[in-house]
């Protein structure tokens, strides 16, 4: 075939540029999400994800359902021996708990601190974590999945990655997850966004 190299190259280069642009556009949700964490947040907002209805073990040792019909949840992932980020998460929940009590919105939502350290976090330690952070059991549940299988399903559904930090602890994406009354994860908030969370609760909850 007789095709001028200049034209052929211009064509091929254009194909590469357009193809590369589209691939990266696709892989970054239209240049909106460059990290897995941003992508996760964007994905649940666009298409809320169903959360598996599993039972969790609480500080009393009893099993309770994670989801409660008609009542939205705020879920954070923790492990009780965590010295750093989980403490901040706990303080954030305490702040939200107080604000909800003050505004008389206690029945609007449940707070759940969910431990992924199912080997070490015994009911006693979960109870101690709740006491330490000032959790009011009426509104704030501290618990962990009953078995490893449930934990795996939850982590996948929430999109949470837990990495051992090599010093007996874990590193994980710290965030506060909003699960609507329909049992679907629809918003993910950052630490320090208590005000936005409260505003969201007032508008979103029935």
């Amino acid at each position: 075939m007789r095709i001028r190299p200049a034209i052929a190259t211009a064509l091929a280069s254009t194909v590469v540029i357009v193809g590369g642009f589209l691939t990266i556009w696709q892989a970054s949700d239209g240049f909106a999400a460059f990290t897995t964490e941003t992508a996760r947040r964007l994905a649940v907002e666009r298409a809320p994800r169903p959360i598996p209805a599993v039972d969790i073990v609480t500080g009393t040792g009893m099993g309770v359902p994670l989801l409660s019909a008609g009542r939205p949840l705020l879920v954070e992932f923790v492990y009780t021996s965590c010295p750093t980020i989980c403490t901040s998460l706990g303080q954030e929940f305490l702040q939200i708990q107080s604000a909800l009590s003050a505004r008389g919105l206690v029945d609007r939502v449940r707070l759940v601190s969910l431990s992924f350290d199912i080997e070490r976090d015994t009911p006693a330690r979960l109870a101690e974590y709740g006491r330490h952070h000032g959790a009011d059991p009426v509104i704030w549940t501290v618990g962990r999945p009953r078995q490893a299988n449930d934990l795996a399903r939850l982590l996948v559904a929430f999109g949470v990655t837990v990495v051992p930090d090599g010093e007996g602890g874990f590193v994980h994406n710290a965030a506060i997850h909003y699960v609507g009354a329909d049992g679907r994860l629809s918003r993910i908030f950052d630490l320090g966004e208590a005000d936005s969370i409260l505003a969201h609760l007032e508008t979103a909850a029935p």
Binding site: I3, P5, A8, T9, L11, A12
Partner: peptide, 8 residues
């Protein structure tokens, strides 16, 4: 032919 000057 398709890679003149190495651009592609």
């Amino acid at each position: 032919t398709w890679n003149r000057g190495g651009s592609t």
